[in-house]
Amino acid sequence: MWIWQQLGWPQLTYDSARLDNLEQQFLLRAGAFIGAFKHVGAEDRDAFRIELISDEALKTSAIEGEVLNRESVQFSLRQQFGLGGATGHAPPREQGIAEMMADLYRHSLDPLTHETLFAWHSMVMNGNRRLRAIGEYRSHPEPMQVVSDRLHEPAVFFEAPPSARMQDEMAGFIAWFTDTAPQGKAPLPSLARAGIAHLYFVCIHPFEDGNGRIARALAEKSLAQNLGQPSLIALAFTIERARKEYYAALARNNRSTEITNWLVYFAETILTALENTHARIDFHIAKARFYDAHRGRLNARQEKAITRMFREGIDGFKGGLSAENYIGITRASRATATRDLQNLVEKGALTKTGSLRHTRYWLNLPMLAR
């Protein structure tokens, strides 16, 4: 029996004592992040906001196996927020996910409605021509199943409630989301509410596609409402790093209405996401200072390589930047690449580890010290 077939559904139970310490940690870390972000200058804040939201847009899509173009997503986000300097073109998928993430950020404190979810689904499915129902709950008579991609013996990981129940199920979900908000009839702590919102929604699986992306957006909306401001928490960024663990946790918790283990997993993921968000703010601040320090001191090849290194984010190139990487990025000869890299080390832009063919280069930033 699936979770929605259990006696008592949709009432989900858990041991709140196991979340108490995690809730306290969340409030402390969220406060520290909010304080750190307030110290960022207004001009830099817009740039960081675009960076953080675009990363979430890219990663929430990557969790579902969709690889999007970063520049197109950022171009569309800058348009959404009315920021200057937006030039280029965004294909439908990039435009759609950027539109949803911008709407989530701007209206995170607004009540949740069916219309909100329909709009998000239309955005996420922008350009999709294979679905029968976009911007509405599914209505097809076939079972809604999540299956493996094995061709000969596909395994059913989950089967959702039949489409005929969608209107009632989603009316119940929205009523629950409203009642458990900070000003609702039965408010819940931050982590419990976000975790339940995610699991409850994906167990209903109301849309033909896009349920995972919308569930993660709902978790972030829930956190924002509990914090009283948009969260910018790197939830999708963190989940994508351990995607198999995320899907395994969902699979372990889709047959019982007792969901303590899911909530502990999700709460710990949110705490890790907060740490990642704080680290990325530090990274973006260091990036701004780096460019201030080296403006006008790098040649065109070096600037191109540095830009490419920053695009890799906190993790950087796996194993560090090699001379071969530099040649691939800049199309420079080996001799020129060697001179350029040595010059970057002398200027303090890069640090160097290893020797000979094991030589690797790293951005010279405090949080990346090696």
Rank of each mutant, 00 (worst) to 15 (best):
R130F: 02
I327C: 06
R311F: 08
I63L: 03
E94F: 01
R295G: 15
D103T: 10
E64G: 05
N276C: 08
F81S: 05
V156A: 10
T336D: 06
L250W: 01
L199A: 11
F158S: 14
P189G: 14
R150I: 04
S256I: 01
A337Y: 06
S256C: 01
R301V: 13
G127V: 04
F290V: 09
I63F: 00
P189Y: 11
A251E: 08
L368H: 09
T13V: 06
L368W: 01
V156S: 11
L341Y: 09
C203H: 08
P91R: 10
D15V: 10
P111M: 00
G320M: 04
Q167D: 14
E324G: 11
L52N: 13
M101Y: 02
G296W: 07
Y265H: 00
K287Y: 10
E71Y: 02
Y361W: 02
I3E: 02
N69V: 10
A219S: 14
E153P: 11
T178W: 12
T260W: 03
H358Q: 09
T330Y: 05
R49A: 08
L112Q: 04
I50S: 08
P230A: 00
K185A: 15
E51Y: 03
S163A: 15
F118E: 02
A155K: 15
S16G: 09
E142H: 12
S333V: 04
L52Y: 12
H198T: 08
H358M: 06
Q80P: 09
V156E: 10
A57E: 10
L104I: 10
V67Y: 01
A186Q: 15
S54A: 15
F266G: 07
F201P: 14
A17K: 13
E240M: 05
N253T: 04
A323G: 12
Y200H: 14
Y326W: 06
E99N: 11
E71L: 05
A175P: 14
G85E: 00
S16D: 10
A242W: 03
L131S: 01
L131N: 03
A42Q: 14
D55N: 15
R308C: 05
A349R: 07
H278P: 04
Y137R: 05
G328M: 04
A286Q: 15
H107W: 00
L68G: 13
R360V: 03
A164T: 14
F26K: 04
R29N: 12
H205S: 12
Q74V: 07
P366G: 09
A293Q: 15
P182E: 08
I63T: 07
L350P: 14
F207L: 03
L151Q: 10
I281G: 08
V147G: 11
A194N: 13
K318S: 10
D149S: 07
A197G: 14
P91T: 13
E153V: 12
M166E: 13
E43N: 14
L321C: 01
R360D: 05
T113F: 00
F207E: 00
D110K: 01
A300C: 11
F173T: 15
R243S: 02
T351V: 09
K352P: 09
Q302K: 11
A217S: 15
F118V: 01
F118S: 00
I134T: 04
I239N: 03
G127D: 04
N261R: 05
A102I: 07
E346Y: 01
L365D: 05
E43D: 15
K38A: 12
R289V: 15
V124I: 06
S139K: 12
A242T: 13
S322K: 03
K318N: 08
T257N: 02
K38N: 13
T113E: 00
R165T: 14
I239E: 05
I204Q: 13
